[in-house]
Simulated scan of single mutants.
Amino acid sequence: MQRIRLRYTKRGRLRFTSHRDFQRAFERALRRAEVPMAYSAGFTPHPKVSYANAAPTGTASEAEYLEIALAERRDPEHLRRLLDASLPTGLDVLDAVEAHTSGFADRLTASRWELRLDGVEPAEAERAARAFLDASSVEVSRETKKGLRTFDARAAVASLEAVADEPEGGPDRPEQGGCAILRLVVRHLTPAVRPDDVLSGLRAAAGLAPPVPAGVTRLAQGPLDEESGTVADPLAPDRDATPVATAPGPAA
């Protein structure tokens, strides 16, 4: 089998697509693009697709990942174009590489997020970010499948800054100005700390309460460099591996 790793987006109204809805849309795209999928064994075979750390429903993302297994070899870039054309606008396939390594999910140790806070002055957001980072711990509570859980949101945040420049969220950025932008890197811990947990922590630590819901976009996810607080490209090890010749497959 050939394994292909894909990076895709959730933009605009499609950010409200649930993970289950995306799975259905992606499997339809596989059929439309006539991708030669490998299937599981048993009474109910299903295409071999592995999803990695999907963003919460309602959150935009520029860095969602999945892996597919093929029964016949295909050129990754040709396959990317076919799948991108078969998915609705907003669910865009941006990148495809052949997998030459294992343990891909283990590389996704952190995410870089952007929070757009309409109605919040940049100076207020900067003050709240400093108060959050200066705290030794910031406890927040969230209802989970196992009931109400309380955990430390501060421990998961590797970096947090207020910025004055334009948001990086691309198509989801507003036309009007007058909002604060926070960028943060969050470690993938157990239990998972989500951007809304950090917003709850900013409210608890500094009284920051945006008048409207924050616009949340995941900008990247991958290996975390603890020293610099940056998130690296998780597909880089596969890009650097020795390429293997592949057939381009049928025309679009």
Rank of each mutant, 00 (worst) to 15 (best):
Leu91Asn: 00
Gly178Arg: 00
Trp113Val: 05
Pro211Asn: 08
Glu126Arg: 15
Leu199Lys: 04
Lys48Phe: 02
Glu114Leu: 05
Ala85Pro: 02
Thr9Asn: 15
Leu199His: 11
Pro56Arg: 03
Ala52Leu: 14
Ser50Met: 06
Arg239Lys: 15
Pro223Ile: 01
Glu114Ile: 07
Val212Lys: 13
Gln221Thr: 13
Pro122Cys: 08
Val216Glu: 14
Arg20His: 11
Val244Tyr: 00
Ala209Gly: 10
Pro191Lys: 02
Arg32Ser: 11
Arg3Ile: 02
Arg32Gly: 04
Glu143Val: 10
Ala60Asp: 07
Glu67Lys: 10
Arg127Phe: 09
Leu184Ser: 11
Leu182Val: 11
Glu227Met: 02
Ala69Val: 12
Pro223Glu: 01
Pro213Gln: 01
Ser40Met: 06
Val120Thr: 13
Trp113Arg: 08
Leu79Ser: 00
Ser61Glu: 06
Gly177Val: 03
Gly90Ile: 01
Asp152Asn: 05
Glu77Asn: 08
Ala153Met: 01
Leu182Met: 13
Thr57Lys: 03
Val35Pro: 04
Ala25Val: 11
Arg3Asn: 14
Leu82Thr: 05
Pro56Tyr: 01
Glu126Ile: 02
His19Glu: 03
Leu224Arg: 08
Ala129Ile: 00
Ala129Arg: 00
Ala180Ser: 14
Arg142Trp: 01
Pro88Cys: 03
Gly178Ala: 02
Gly12Val: 05
Gly42Glu: 10
Val163Gly: 09
Arg20Trp: 07
Arg73Val: 14
Ser137Phe: 10
Pro223Met: 02
Ala180Phe: 07
